[in-house]
């Protein structure tokens, strides 16, 4: 027989009690509603996404979702279309960053100079950003058409009579979409860089000029390193957008010809909402989420290092 001995409540160490008592909890209490709201808005969808990804889930009929564990993720490994869309998205992102950042920086450097019409040019730069991607995508489809489009005519005027079949050639379709994306979003990079350039201190540049540094040396050893934090911010924003790109691809090619321009986000949309594989689509979405998160965290770490 076991003797019933009253349990002594665990004693909180005196130092901890003092710390708890003396700590000012006001900031935490003030932050709490925002934190709860953020957790509800951001956290719940993510948790539900994970839940969906572990089920075989169809909207057709009344059958309850069936738990499949990590079956959807295992199936992704054997899904050639998924793997190809993932690789294509990385290619799209790399090409996008390689065009957006240098071009945006170049435009910002040009706009730094004082010239007639600079203000107008800056206003003009904003136009592609504020235009609706879907409408602009359709405009580009018509402009790039080899029979009706103006691009062929303009290239013909400068002696290029047989331009590529921009959206019909499997080798050209992704670079063409990247160019349209760059037309829309390079101005944003340029504006971020312009803000960064405007905030750079003047003294180092004056000292370098006195020391006989060339324009290239001033750019290479002063402008670029000083601007790097802003460039990384621009890179981070573009990286997230490029990894998630869907709008212009959906409108301009629908992922075609065949699947030659299908990005992971477009594949995700088709699988979940068109093919009625909600659970499998959730698994694709989680992979995309992990990809965007990892890339963003990598850039944040790089920014801290600089």
């Amino acid at each position: 027989m076991v003797a019933l001995v009253p349990q002594q409540p665990a004693r909180v160490p005196a130092t901890v009690r003092r710390w708890l008592w003396r700590r000012d909890w006001t900031p935490d209490l003030l932050l709490a509603p925002a934190l709860v709201a953020t957790a509800a808005v951001m956290g719940f969808p993510l948790v539900f996404l994970v839940y969906m990804s572990l089920h075989k889930w169809s909207l057709i009929g009344y059958a309850a979702p069936a738990f499949v564990g990590f079956g959807n993720f295992a199936a992704l490994l054997g899904d050639d279309r998924f793997i190809q869309s993932l690789l294509r998205t990385l290619y799209f992102t790399a090409l996008g960053l390689a065009t957006n950042l240098p071009a945006g920086l170049g435009i910002a450097l040009l706009l730094q100079r004082d010239f007639f019409g600079r203000g107008f040019l800056r206003a003009l730069l904003v136009f592609p950003m504020v235009a609706t991607p879907v409408a602009m995508g359709l405009v580009w489809v018509i402009m790039l058409d080899p029979s009706l489009g103006i691009i062929r005519y303009l290239l013909g005027c400068v002696g290029i009579s047989h331009p590529p079949l921009w959206l019909s050639d499997t080798n050209w379709v992704v670079p063409t979409l990247v160019l349209v994306d760059a037309w829309m979003w390079t101005p944003m990079v340029a504006l971020i860089c312009s803000a960064g350039l405007a905030a750079l201190p003047g003294e180092p540049f004056e000292a370098a000029t006195v020391d006989g540094a060339s324009a290239w040396q001033r750019f290479r050893y002063l402008t670029l390193p000083l601007l790097m934090p802003m460039l990384l911010v621009a890179a981070m924003l573009r990286l997230m957008d490029l990894l998630k790109v869907i709008d212009i691809v959906y409108v301009m090619t629908g992922g075609g010809p065949g699947h030659a321009s299908e990005t992971i986000n477009l594949y995700n949309y088709l699988v979940a909402l068109s093919y009625d594989k909600i659970g499998y689509g959730a698994a694709v979405a989680l992979v995309l989420f992990a990809l965007v998160l990892a890339a963003t965290l990598g850039l944040i770490r790089l920014r801290r290092a600089t």
């Binding site: 359709l138 489809v141 018509i142 058409d145 080899p146 029979s147 009706l148 079949l165 921009w166 959206l167 019909s168 050639d169 379709v173 090619t253 629908g254 075609g256 010809p257």
Partner: peptide
């Protein structure tokens, strides 16, 4: 067909 036939959707075929 037109040179860019691969990938042409109805929104680009009928205008031709």
């Amino acid at each position: 067909g037109p040179p860019n036939i691969v990938g042409m959707q109805w929104k680009t075929t009928y205008p031709l």
